[in-house]
Simulated scan of single mutants.
Amino acid sequence: MSNPQNTTAGVFPRRSLTRVRALTVTAMLSAIAFVLMFLDFSVPLIPSFVKMDISELPALLAAFALGPVYGTVVCLVKNLIHLMITSTAGAGELCNFLLGASFVIPAGLLYRRMKSRKGALIGVLIGSVIMALFSIPLNYYVTYPIYSNFMPIDAILGMYQAIRPSVNSLLECLIVFNAPFTLVKGLIDAALCFLIYKSLSPILHKGM
């Protein structure tokens, strides 16, 4: 008969080691996400201050490999670091974190319930839609009111109207421009994740 004390002693160090490795992977992915935030770029038919980036990709990798909590942590850490070196009054970072979390949490939860390629695909599609829809009230009630302290809403609206003169309100701009933009952003992150996840899986799951 085995000694219960020895069995317990063997389990807890292994659990601790697994958690340390998960945190190490999370820290690595957070650093990559932070760097990717600076590799942003403008896209056609969107005002120049709305930038495209793929910094949710590492968070999505973490959500699939480690769970949605770790994916959310990646979103949080990258924005906390970004906040320390920029001066956007936290509006951009808050928006980026909340949108990223609204993307990776549904994707990670669904993948946890359906650990298959189909489950991952359904997860990222639902996550992308949720993120796109959530971007409308988040930008309307939180992000743009903060930005209006630096740039008048009329000026912001004018940048949208320069692209499509028929838009008459900020809410309409967010529905016509920002929501589809955010949806595409999520789908790009999802596509890239599907392309590289298998090759990175041994690194992400090592020792788990």
Rank of each mutant, 00 (worst) to 15 (best):
Y70V: 01
N96Y: 03
M131D: 03
L36D: 11
L133C: 04
A107E: 08
L23G: 07
V43S: 00
V176W: 06
R113V: 13
L125C: 14
M1A: 13
S128A: 12
R19E: 13
L171S: 05
P106V: 06
A101R: 08
F194C: 04
P137V: 05
C173Y: 05
V20I: 14
L110T: 02
G90Y: 12
L36S: 13
S169R: 11
A22Y: 06
V50R: 10
V184M: 09
R112N: 12
V69P: 04
A132F: 00
P58Y: 03
F49M: 03
F181T: 03
F34M: 10
S135F: 01
I126M: 13
A27P: 02
K118Y: 10
D189F: 03
S48G: 13
L80F: 12
D154Q: 09
L83K: 09
V124C: 07
A89S: 15
I146E: 03
L61A: 00
V142L: 10
V11C: 01
G123R: 05
N178F: 07
P47I: 01
L170E: 14
G158C: 00
S166I: 14
F38V: 10
Y147Q: 10
V74S: 00
M84L: 15
C75M: 05
I46N: 02
T88D: 15
I203T: 15
L61P: 01
A155F: 11
A120F: 06
K185N: 07
V129F: 07
Q161H: 03
D40T: 08
G92W: 10
S116K: 05
P145S: 11
S166L: 13
N79M: 04
D40G: 12
P58F: 05
V124L: 08
S30E: 06
S55K: 06
L76V: 10
S148R: 06
T88M: 11
A120V: 01
K185T: 04
N79Q: 12
L174M: 04
V73W: 00
A101I: 12
L170N: 11
V104Y: 10
S102I: 10
A89L: 15
G123V: 08
A107N: 09
T86Q: 13
C75W: 01
M28G: 01
T143C: 09
R15F: 06
K206F: 15
C95G: 11
L83V: 10
N149S: 13
S30I: 01
T26F: 00
T86H: 10
L200E: 08
L17Q: 11
V20L: 14
G67C: 01
R112G: 05
Y140A: 06
A59F: 01
K51V: 08
L200A: 14
R113H: 08
V43A: 03
I130N: 05
L66A: 03
A132P: 00
T7G: 11
L195A: 12
N139K: 03
T18D: 11
V25H: 00
S128H: 01
D53C: 13
I126A: 15
I163D: 06
L23Q: 10
Q161Y: 07
L57Q: 07
R15E: 10
I32V: 15
A62L: 04
G123L: 11
P68C: 08
M52H: 08
